[in-house]
Design a protein around this nucleic acid. Structure first.
Lengths: 195, 195, 195, 195
DNA sequence: ACATACGGGACCTCCCGTTGCT
DNA sequence: AGCAACGGGAGGTCCCGTATGT
């Protein structure tokens, strides 16, 4: 148990640090200091080095982000309302974190896409799973499969971009605005289907 | 002239390297090797260090990206068509660069937003200027000012997000799809205005 | 043992180099080359950087200098003779070292007293301990405590100054002369006490 | 005129910076910033580089220190009183400078005696001139020439050492004490001559 | 007499990965 | 599982001297 706790604490801390400062600005030294885990466990748990840590951190962070979205979708009356709720909750959580905890994937993806095939693949897969998951919920609301995948990609892209703009501007507005726009757009599409 | 060339070559090379590998993975060593500029000129042209270089690189890269968009808008028959053309040209240029030359701002912004106030401010300003420029073109097409600013933010956010997804997936699709969607959405809005 | 040897070798070499060239002219590069210790151990043994190394080097060098003086005091027939013997042995050792190995404290003290509080404090403490130690021996010879502290300060100051003059002039004379003068002065004071 | 002013300002600033931080910690950059002199004049006035600047700075600083001592000797009723006045004035001036402006020679001498023959020679000469000047005043008070040279060396050595201890301890005491001791010692010698 | 730029090298710090020893 | 130490290399910064134009 104590071994898995060390590993988990390392991964969770890594996820947080990667979101805040990115991959290259996060050193093992910072990680062990922040997490309070022992130096000696690094190689034991991550023989593949920092790259292996990042792969694990992205998978964990991605899984959390995914269930975070599903959580708010479940609490909304409809899928359009779920979209807006999701964007708004992310916006307020971002501000609460001091505009520090952005997407667990995007920063690392941009930093390593041309340098680490393993990380690039992990990020690409995480992005894909996110879109598939969103598409599934859209289909459940009645959107045709092909259209659902398109919309999922569009919404997810906007989500990522709005997250960047929000952090840069230190403002919830990009995320809030995007949430509202897609709520409206989706409601329109669903109304058109009903007729 | 040769004096200004050194500084300019450093900035242009920095812009390229920052897009490819980000801020922290770009070293002065790499920069002087790639640009063929002398080590000794670093402190002379950028006494503020790497941070000052990055500020300059982002401003230059941003200006280029901005005029790039305007270039394709001018060559399109309408603003909706301009949006699509812009997204498509960026998509094909991205693939041509081996999926390496992404946004000149986004990567550095994500890496430094919580570490360098100067860079964060530079990125925030660049994002803001980009949106204002886009909003201006939307207003020229007949969109109401307030709505133009909303749309500009939405489109620009989607642009940034689609750029990330495209690089991660090594696919033009996110950008192409976003271009088409916003072309349609904008055409709809303009049609509604005519009535 | 081999672990402690690396640290110790670094400190001893640093002491030697600081005496010879001072703090700022002694680089880590020179130190690892001279001591044959690994680069990588620098941060491990001295996470506080060069400043921490210097603190350790001064403490070690100071302790050696202190026991060196006590050594010659023990071998002399009287405290006045001890003073002279000490000054003379230091003078000849200095010449033997090619006028290179001066005081382990003075040079670093002068270089860093206005820049590094930690080093300044270390040097001040070392000077103070030296004077207390000398005062103790003077009291043991019969000098009154208050006078012993005065004389210790005076003798130690002259010792430091003579060391500088000796190195600058490449001559033992300042140290030899000072030794003789204080032998006489001290003998006079002790004679006065006997009456 | 303006050319000689630039040179002089550089030398005076260098003297101050060398006293404060030593030779190696004083860079050209710091010097031009502190002195407000033009970068371009460096090579014109000091083609021999930093070493030439230091030689000039030591000569100037030394000359000032020498006339400073003579100044206070002239204002004292006797040579013994002059000694004490000199030490006391130096002590108070040192404290007033924030314990920063020590001897214009000692720090540079210790740093460069084994590295720069030109500077070592300059320092040695300055020390020698100081002692000769002091010896001359002692002879004028009636001390025999040979004894005057001995005393001058002793007093000057103590002066230098006390200056170091005073800066390290941030206390006027070492200088004040040394002044009083030599006042008494000298008065004794002069009394013995009268008999 | 001064300014701007070049030019290479060295500075200290810190990094990440590995190796034996508990 | 964990620890202390090794090991080399690269990080960004800054230095000093020189060269070319005013």
């Amino acid at each position: 148990m104590s071994t898995s706790t060390t590993r988990e604490r390392m991964i969770e801390t890594a996820d947080r640090l990667f979101r805040r400062h990115g991959y290259h600005a996060t050193s093992w030294r910072t990680l062990v200091e922040e997490s309070g885990t022992p130096w000696g466990s690094i190689q034991h748990h991550f023989p593949g080095g920092k790259e292996e840590l990042a792969v694990a951190a992205i998978e964990v962070g991605h899984a959390q982000a995914l269930s975070y979205r599903e959580h708010w979708f479940e609490r909304a009356d409809s899928v359009p309302a779920g979209i807006r709720l999701w964007f708004e909750k992310v916006a307020s959580a971002l501000e609460r974190s001091g505009w520090e905890l952005g997407c667990p994937i995007a920063t690392v993806a941009l930093e390593t896409v041309n340098a680490s095939p393993a990380l690039a693949e992990t990020c690409a897969h995480a992005f894909d799973v996110s879109q598939r998951s969103l598409a599934k919920d859209l289909r459940a609301a009645g959107i045709a499969p092909a259209r659902a995948r398109e919309l999922a990609m569009l919404i997810f892209a906007t989500f990522e971009g709005a997250l960047i703009l929000a952090r840069a501007a230190r403002s919830q507005k990009p995320l809030q605005l995007a949430g509202k726009q897609f709520e409206a757009l989706l409601a329109d599409e669903l109304r058109a289907l009903d007729r």
